[in-house]
Design a protein around this nucleic acid. Sequence first.
DNA 1: ACCTTATTGATCGATAATCGAACATATGTT
DNA 2: AACATATGTTCGATTATCGATCAATAAGGT
Lengths: 255, 255
Amino acid sequence: MPEKLTDKDISLTFAKGLEVLAAFDAEDRELTIPEVARKTNLNRTVARRLVLTLEHLNYLECNNRVYRLTPRILRLAGGFLQGRDIGKHVSPILATYSEKLKGSVSFAMLDGNEAVYVAHSPGDPRMITLGFTVGSRLPLHATAIGRALVAFSGWETRERLLEVAPRVKYTCSTKIDLDDLRDDLDLSVRNGFVYVQDEFEQGVASLAVPVKRPDGALIGSLGIVGPNPRFSNEKNKLEKVRLLHECAGSIAMIV
Amino acid sequence: MPEKLTDKDISLTFAKGLEVLAAFDAEDRELTIPEVARKTNLNRTVARRLVLTLEHLNYLECNNRVYRLTPRILRLAGGFLQGRDIGKHVSPILATYSEKLKGSVSFAMLDGNEAVYVAHSPGDPRMITLGFTVGSRLPLHATAIGRALVAFSGWETRERLLEVAPRVKYTCSTKIDLDDLRDDLDLSVRNGFVYVQDEFEQGVASLAVPVKRPDGALIGSLGIVGPNPRFSNEKNKLEKVRLLHECAGSIAMIV
DNA sequence: ACCTTATTGATCGATAATCGAACATATGTT
DNA sequence: AACATATGTTCGATTATCGATCAATAAGGT
């Protein structure tokens, strides 16, 4: 007997529809209906109806059988960003500290097994920041901003994340051993900040601090990235940490 | 006999689900299930199942019966933003021109009857830019960036937008007469830019130019906002227009 | 504190929306 | 041109969805 998957409280069609929507990601900006069906493991007819629904609702536009997202999707994101006053309050704060820190500052939150950029203030326009922006996702283990989300979570969450989050070896320096990571997390908690170097990209380092609500609950993390030498002066690094903490305090008030 | 609404090609459940998701907007960052049902005109049970589905998929989180969006929604937005290289290419360009123009620069696209901010580069951090950010929506008729989207569309789209887009009178200067608007649009097309003053907020002016693909198709519009005096020097204003056009050219290459 | 009223949560059979096999059409390959 | 492959569409069977109804909880009044 095929297992009864009818949860009665979960709308399968809706869940499939969201999968279709999510199929249009950074890798696949354009997809045909059969491609969607393959990527989502849905029956072609089902994928078709869901895609057509999305087109009908103006979430997708079609050009010669090829579909791609329209800016309509930003409406949904706007609900989140504006609801949490990201644009009104967080971004200006980031911009201010971006000046003080002379570089781009990013605010990330936990999304499943990844860190997702919620706000981002580009520093010097000339310095291309690897193209990260709102909605960009980063691994939890190999970046400071991600590792901060793990380190400053409660014990339970922390262990769960260590367990379930994928640990890709991006460089030869990437820590992927669980105990190594635990040690690093412990150290980070003692320090009050996370420093990661060469683990995501050779020669690139990142620094991050937690953003916590007054009651101690972790909201997100705040980080900066740059070539290693920028962090080599220890005193300078601690000054950056101080500024990040200050910035985190301001953000914590409003989110 | 109740009209048969079964379009066979449109998934009603999915459409309803997206409505539920969209119910969480800037005004209502937090909603209970019955509130969602009321706002979307859905049966309470239906709303419940859709909300529970969203919670199950981590798009919503629940705190004491109150639901709100999680950053997961940014994943979907990320598909759009990264797919169109907004973060990698558009934002840096905006940042560069934001320096040259000494103020924030925004890139908007058409979404239904509204303009939606797709990218935004804050200028001087001290100058709070009214809290607009990615996903913010603006009316088409009362802002330069919105009016540019109408003016530089093809004739058919332009007339449709004039017809269907709501024309709210934000200030006593807001143009709401169709023929007044048409005149202004014609003028804007002749000029190659849109200038709007006092129509959205007293004392605030905005300047915008179209972003067109090489083949002439309108992609979006690029605009700046500021207190009226900033645009009072005509020569200076034209220099801003020139920079905006330059910026638009750079963006047109990549989107 | 008690009862009443209003609001919200959960159940379950009828119904209509969804599914997917099968067919039709388009595309490209030898 | 004929074949093979990939994509689009149809339509009846199935089952997920709907919403009236009931249960539980919260709010309000005396």
